[in-house]
Amino acid sequence: MQHPEPNNNEIKLSSKRYIVSKTDPKGIIVYGNDYFVEISGYSEAELLGKAHSIVRHPDMPKIAFKLMWDRIKQAKNFIAVVKNLAKDGSYYWVVTDFEPKVDPITNEIISHTAFRKAAPRKAIDTMIPIYAKLLEIEQDEGMEASEKYLREFLEENNTTYDDFVNNLVGNKGLFKLFFTAMKKLFS
């Protein structure tokens, strides 16, 4: 399936609704809630069995997904501010919290569930120039250079990736309660 041509139409997400999708260990969609179907513009049949990258926006640097996969392959949570692409080329910004599910016997990852909420404007405005710079570096020098830039950025700001994102999206209080509640609902 070909990716749509991105346009400048932003889909404003409801702060009262959430997007949930579940993939197998390789990132193939096995479940999407109604809001995911609605916002993405794809039918449920078009989403199921497809790689989750079907909603990947070209403005997102590859390093963001490398960090995500490095983390979730170790069965660790990962929170990120992500720009996603809808079927019609529109885009929407989310805060995504990935929750890997591990088989209690084999200890292998059996699925990943992603819980998404509308990203705060402040987080979007902060990430746009960072992602643009990472993308530019990736195109000129490759992903390793992009990762090096990100590492140096975090060191200069005396923070870790997790702390940077948690502070950016306000992942505390009600926001944190939301993700905790969602995980209980879908586990």
Rank of each mutant, 00 (worst) to 15 (best):
V94I: 14
K122Y: 12
D88H: 10
P120Y: 00
P100Q: 07
A75E: 11
A75Q: 12
E99P: 00
T126E: 15
E99D: 13
V81G: 00
D125W: 00
P120S: 03
A123N: 04
A114L: 04
V82I: 15
I130P: 10
K101P: 02
D103W: 03
F78I: 02
Q74A: 14
T96F: 00
G89D: 02
V82T: 14
D103M: 06
D103H: 11
H112Y: 15
K83M: 08
A119R: 02
K83H: 10
M127K: 05
L134H: 08
T106V: 11
S111C: 13
A119P: 06
F98R: 00
A119T: 03
F115S: 04
R116N: 09
Q74M: 13
R116D: 06
Y131Q: 03
T113K: 11
T96P: 00
N107P: 00
K122F: 13
P104I: 12
D125M: 10
A75V: 07
Y91C: 10
I109Q: 05
K133E: 15
E99R: 13
I105L: 15
I128C: 03
K83S: 07
F78D: 01
K76W: 00
P129A: 03
A75I: 05
M127D: 09
Y131V: 03
F115C: 07
K101C: 08
V94Q: 01
H112A: 01
Y92N: 01
D103F: 07
I128P: 04
D88W: 10
K101D: 11
T106Y: 09
K117H: 07
A75P: 11
Y92R: 03
A114N: 04
L134N: 01
L85Q: 11
N107Y: 12
P100N: 06
I110C: 11
K117C: 09
M127F: 10
S90N: 04
K133V: 06
V81T: 09
I130C: 03
K101E: 14
T126W: 04
Y131G: 05
F98A: 14
V81E: 00
V102H: 05
T126M: 13
M127W: 09
A118T: 07
Y131A: 03
K87Y: 06
T126R: 13
I109F: 01
P120G: 02
K83R: 15
K76F: 05
Y91W: 11
K76S: 12
V102G: 10
I109M: 11
E99L: 13
K117L: 15
M127Y: 07
K87W: 07
T106G: 09
T96L: 11
V95L: 01
S111Y: 11
A119F: 02
L85M: 12
Y91F: 15
I105R: 13
Y91R: 08
P100E: 01
K101V: 15
E99I: 10
K117Y: 08
K101T: 15
I124K: 11
Y92S: 05
T126G: 04
A118G: 00
A123W: 03
V82S: 07
V102A: 06
V82F: 08
D103T: 08
K122H: 14
K117N: 09
Y92M: 08
D125K: 14
A118R: 06
I79R: 14
E108I: 10
V82D: 07
L85G: 10
Y91M: 10
I128Q: 13
N107H: 15
Y92H: 06
I110A: 01
